[in-house]
């Protein structure tokens, strides 16, 4: 056959090497991103829209669950917060990825809704010296 390049159709050792490189990249990026974040402690959920923080929920201060509603770019998202988790329970965005993400429970985790440009992130609040209120 006269292709521009004839492809090799059987996997070989070089392919294994390429796969290994991807695995190493996954592990290294995972190690870099997921370590160092405070594991336990009180969690704060930070909700931001278009890169700007719009809400901050001190999860430790909740007893039951609390639902809050966010509006962004014409979409409405219902987010349910509990003492230890945050979850998008309903959204009218077309992709529904945010709903499918389910509950996040660890510091550093996040739920992203691209159509609404909304992000729910969990932050650890091990730092008890942080202020209760900020002005300015």
């Amino acid at each position: 056959m006269r292709m521009k390049w004839s492809p090799e159709l059987h996997p070989n050792g070089w392919d294994a090497l390429a796969a290994a490189v991807v695995v190493v990249l996954a592990l290294v990026s995972g190690a870099l991103l997921y370590t160092g974040g405070p594991g336990g402690g009180d969690l704060t959920a930070v909700v931001s829209v278009d890169g700007g923080e719009t809400d901050r929920v001190d999860l430790a201060a909740l007893t039951g669950s609390e639902e809050r509603v966010y509006e962004s770019r014409g979409y409405t998202l219902r987010v349910t917060f509990t003492e230890s988790s945050a979850q998008v329970t309903a959204s009218d965005c077309p992709t529904q990825d945010c709903v499918h993400t389910g509950a996040i429970t660890r510091s550093g985790q996040s739920i992203v809704c691209l159509p609404a440009r909304l992000i729910v992130e969990l932050e650890g609040t091990g730092d008890t010296d942080g202020p209760d209120v900020v002005i300015g």
């Binding site: 010296d129 942080g130 209760d132 209120v133 900020v134 002005i135 300015g136």
Partner: peptide, 12 residues
Amino acid sequence: PWQIGIQDPARP
């Protein structure tokens, strides 16, 4: 007492 952080105007 409540702790109130005063924003640094140089790093808004």
